[in-house]
Design a protein around this nucleic acid. Structure first.
Lengths: 207, 207
DNA sequence: TCTGAACTTGACCGTATGGTCAAGTACGCT
DNA sequence: AGCGTACTTGACCATACGGTCAAGTTCAGA
């Protein structure tokens, strides 16, 4: 679209984005009609098409800005820390705080992955997140801070734990992101068998 | 619906379920119309409504049978093993094999979670899966096999790792489920810092 | 061969949806 | 005050969708 917007226009556009984000997240993208959006804001339908080319365009805009902002939040959370493992931890904590304040975006990304027209965009964003994480893991492995292994797999596992606990604990049960981040870090660092907290029982296989 | 079906009818119903599963998974639930389904099978529209009350009914049927079958596969994989930690491992391996042969169902469940009308059903299924896992984790904790902690959180983390690696590795990259299950177990059991494979470096915090 | 239940057809219906547009209003700038 | 651009309105349109149904076909069993 790329229209020249006055501050007033900028404001309207934000209203539309915010309202649509909330409606899409709670009722689903398809079941939420454009008419419903403009009625909810008490404006005419033309307003919608003044700011967005299509419903699809609006949705992709939500995704794009969401992903961009999350990444920014992560990098801000890591600050100028240099140790890769600590950077990873700070990134996890930053993400968790971000999800707690942008709950709707989580649901929208999950939906977007399930539909052919949005999936490619989501995957692109996820490749970026994975690469950010993988690099930190690889650095930590090279430095001998963590056990060697396939950095990509490990990075995906860490993202998986963060993602699931963000959904079920932070979004689902509204638990404080700090606590949940503690749990993510604890699990990812030590696994089931644990290390420092308890003398671990050696794994015993029957075969 | 619950109609008396002849073998021929049973066959048609299965065709519809199979075709719809594939189309919903690749193009999305909403973008796939009932007309598209019956045209794809070369039958009249009435056939669809002979076997299913509505499009929504068909979709829920897919979800229900999928979840039931996965659970059955997990329990079969665990067999009569009694050690909780080994049961957990066998369950993870069984799930991974199942996902590998029922790829479409994964996508459909993820979608179902994002829409108000299907979400409750999905959550019910997930509560069951979580409870199955939580119980094993709790037993292992009680037995002292694994480190103490919040069993629910740990169970969710394990499910998260399985889920993400199933999606990205098994579904996304078509890697052998056995290998991926190895990686899941490895990560979940030892975490980043590792235990047996390498002497782990003590965690060093700056603060 | 007859009967009836299982199954199939496809034209048809009501409605809701994404999107358009001619007309009008608000407002900053000169 | 006058002008132009940013913004807003809401009736309107084409279409696609989920779902119905009267009529027809298949086929197992008597």
């Amino acid at each position: 679209m790329s229209r020249r917007l006055t501050p007033r226009g900028e404001q309207r556009r934000s209203e539309l984005l915010a309202y649509a984000t909330e409606r899409f997240a709670t009722h689903g993208y398809h079941p939420t009609s454009v008419a419903e959006l403009v009625d909810g804001l008490g404006v005419g339908k033309g307003v919608f098409y003044w700011y967005f080319e299509s419903k699809e365009d609006l949705f992709m805009e939500i995704l794009r800005t969401g992903e961009r902002d999350l990444r920014r939040a992560q990098q801000e959370a890591m600050g100028d820390e240099t140790d890769p493992l600590l950077r990873l931890e700070l990134g996890i904590r930053g993400s968790m705080e971000w999800w707690a304040t942008h709950r709707d975006v989580y649901v929208l990304i999950e939906f977007a992955r399930t539909e052919a027209s949005f999936a490619p965009g989501v995957r692109k964003g996820e490749r970026v997140a994975l690469e950010d994480t993988r690099r930190l893991v690889q650095e930590a492995m090279d430095a001998g801070t963590i056990a060697d292994g396939n950095a990509t797999i490990v990075a995906q596992a860490v993202l998986g734990v963060s993602s699931v606990l963000a959904r079920t604990q932070v979004l689902g049960r509204s638990r404080p992101p700090k606590e949940v981040a503690d749990e993510v870090v604890d699990f990812c660092w030590h696994g089931l068998l644990g290390t420092e907290r308890h003398g671990r029982a050696e794994r015993q296989r029957s075969a």
